[in-house]
């Protein structure tokens, strides 16, 4: 356990963990010698809380990327199970495959049936291999589309959860039309009449993320990232050095705060101090509250209004000037 903890420790969390170890030491000592040190412990705990807040309130984009990829960060299925009263997972794209990198199904959120889907990273190495680290194949995007068609047919809102480094780049993915599968979803998601709310819960990477990311609202967790290309790939191309990923992460503007400023996302979902993996229950509560509030807002609109606003929302994206 201690070993596992160390491997899951991010570099910048170290001072915090040292302080926590110190607190534990003081506790052990006090019980050993029977001295009352509650005052000191309270003081140290206050300091730890302060330190945790300080560390996580000023993460660099490179550090945020690490948090977003944390192996203990809650996944799509974790959130689905935490926020819904009931849930049944559905399988298959009806075209010959069932991609485990994308999960989806029908659940009930605050009494209302909804279709939920998203990329699913593994919980451990074995699981990750099975789920291809959340990198979906064309079949995954077609499965997502099939489920969204279902939602549209039965008037259920669609909630998507984005958590993928990128769409899968492999021989079969190319053969089965990775580009076509993504493109098709982008177009069709503008056609659906039901509300669509997308949330970047961890890592949003390139077209593989966008393929389930067209909605009436785009939410993003405080320490999630969303990027045009994986920062490593970007560094390899533009800096000719994959080690320059932190610089690329900085330059690409991938954090929730930057993307809110750029008009890409609508809202930042707050994470507990110490990020979602330190308190998944609180993270899920925040997510649920944000989803319900946004859902109520877009459900108040007529389907044609909703589609028009969805179009206008994306229509406005982009920054350029028109010289005369």
């Amino acid at each position: 356990m201690a070993n596992e903890r160390r491997t899951l420790l991010l570099e910048f969390e170290k001072p915090l963990v040292e302080l926590e170890a110190q607190i534990q030491q003081v506790r052990d000592k006090s019980s050993e010698f029977g001295v009352d040190v509650s005052e000191q412990i309270r003081e140290l705990e206050e300091r730890a809380k302060q330190l945790r807040y300080e560390i996580f309130s000023k993460l660099t984009p490179g550090q945020t990327l690490q948090v977003a990829r944390h192996p203990r960060r809650p996944s799509t299925l974790d959130y689905i199970q935490a926020i819904s009263e009931e849930w049944i997972e559905l399988h298959g794209d009806r075209r010959g495959s069932d991609d485990p990198a994308i999960v989806g199904g029908i659940g009930r959120l605050n009494g209302q049936p909804v279709v939920m889907l998203g990329q699913q990273k593994g919980r451990d190495t074995k699981d990750n291999v099975a789920r291809n680290f959340g990198m979906a194949s064309p079949g995954g995007y077609r499965k997502a589309l099939r489920l969204m068609e279902h939602a549209n047919r039965f008037q259920m809102p669609i909630l998507t959860f984005i958590d993928t480094p990128a769409a899968w780049a492999g021989v079969d993915a190319e053969k089965f039309g990775q580009g076509e599968a993504i493109a098709y979803n982008l177009r069709e998601m503008f056609r659906f009449e039901v509300p669509i709310i997308c949330t970047v819960i961890g890592e949003g990477g390139s077209g593989g993320a966008l393929a389930i990311g067209v909605g009436d609202r785009l939410l993003m967790f405080e320490h999630a990232v969303y990027s045009v290309a994986p920062p490593e790939a970007c560094a390899a191309i533009l800096w000719r050095d994959a080690q320059k990923a932190p610089q690329a992460a900085e330059a690409l503007k991938i954090t929730a705060r930057d993307l809110l400023k750029l008009g890409i996302i609508d809202e930042i979902v707050p994470e507990p101090v110490g990020a979602a993996h330190s308190n998944p229950v609180e993270a899920a509560e925040n997510l649920k509250a944000a989803l319900l509030r946004n859902l109520a807002e877009v459900q108040a609109l007529s389907s044609s209004e909703r589609r028009e606003l969805r179009y206008q929302k994306f229509r406005r994206m982009g920054v350029f000037s028109e010289v005369v």
Partner: peptide, 26 residues
């Protein structure tokens, strides 16, 4: 592909063009 120097602003152009195509198609 997408122009990396404009980050996410480039990526969302994929959705924007697809949206316009949906209307052309309809």
């Amino acid at each position: 592909g997408a122009r990396m120097q404009e980050g996410m602003l480039s990526l969302v152009q994929m959705a924007k063009t697809a949206a316009a195509l949906e209307r052309h198609r309809s």
